[in-house]
Design a protein around this nucleic acid. Sequence first.
DNA 1: TCTGGGGTCCTAGGACCC
DNA 2: TCTGGGGTCCTAGGACCC
Length: 426
Amino acid sequence: MTIFALVDCNNFYASCEKLFDPKLEGVPLVVLSNNDGCVVARSAEVKALGIPMGVPWFKIRDQAKQFGIQAMSSNYTLYADMSNRVVEVLEGFSPNVEVYSIDESFLLLDGFAATQSLEAYGRKIKDRVQHWLGLAVCVGIAETKTLAKLANHCAKKGHAGSAGVCDFTTIAPSELTRVLSKIEVGETWGVGRRLAPRLEKMGIHTVHDLRNANAAQIRAQFSVVLERTVMELKGIACLELEETTPDKKQIVSSRSFGQRIGAFEHLADALAFHATRAAEKLRSQDSVAGALTIFIRTNPFALKEPQYQRSITIPLPQATQDTRELVKWAGRGLRRIYRRGFAYAKAGVMLSEIRPAALAQADLFGSMEDSARSDTLMGMMDRINQRWGRGTLRTASEQAEGIWKMNRGNLSPRYTTSWSELPTVS
DNA sequence: TCTGGGGTCCTAGGACCC
DNA sequence: TCTGGGGTCCTAGGACCC
């Protein structure tokens, strides 16, 4: 029998901040996103005040003043460091640990029940993280990941007499039914804000209802994903522990601007920055990217202002992890999609077609500029121009791109773009 | 005035090939 | 005049997670 434990840090970002500033003890504290835009973490005191997660900071500023809520900008370096320390402690409790997110890990506890109660073991985990790092965690234990998530939820809410630790593996069936009947279906891992209302309409209101649903019917009406969730709720494990973090298949660097930006040069700077960051992430997993997407957009919340958003995906002539190369293509892309006269609010770079650097396409033609003088390239150009008409390839980028496309047996479309332009709302 | 920044997986439909 | 069936690849969109 497979047993999963989910260990989840309470109010993680806020707790980290309190750890490094004792004056914040007992103070209601929120941590804000980039540019101090939204609330991304709340201390227990703030949760008690009913401040929702993700709310824009400006909307609760008055309330914050009234209740003495402290706000801090986020410090992800600090949180990542604390997260690593938590994982180190957890690795002392199981040889199989999956780091699921910055504040959550799954542990495999197979066979541990033979010598001790799992609930007691969970409590040891909780106590040690508290004593060694000063961070409070909750522990949920069950036969599947989805159930462990719910057990953790119960541990947090103090259901079933748990004080931060909840073990579903030894709970009486009638008691489990009672507990799951009290949890709304939307709390289930994998049921979000779209699915929950649809399930409600079908009369599935609680986790218990979903657990008792017909899996095949759920698959037919929703998806295989939700079917798996139902199976997991029934105690049949469909999701395994993933100990090794797979390489990213897509790497994004994007950010909202502090102030609105109109000038081409400023957007170009921002995109160069994002391309650089994305390239760093790419190299850190020793991969290359075969395509680069850039996007720019105005503020979608400013309904009365003219809206413009556009993106362009550029297939790279050769998969690369080189910063200068990626910055160069980001700049070229921007020239294609930039429009004057808009107040841009956000920009970003996405890398895709990612594969290990060892599999990078062999450099058949040398770099684009160099190859412009090579006989091989001229031969290729001739063939392309013969096949698709004289002058098909003119500029250097089109040459390189055309060759790349030809290698894949597909010349067009050269670029894929999407954009939308909405009229001003009066 | 001010509204985050990342990621994943699945499905449907069209193009294209044999 | 009749007009198959199976497979792959690609893209867009929808859902979810933290």
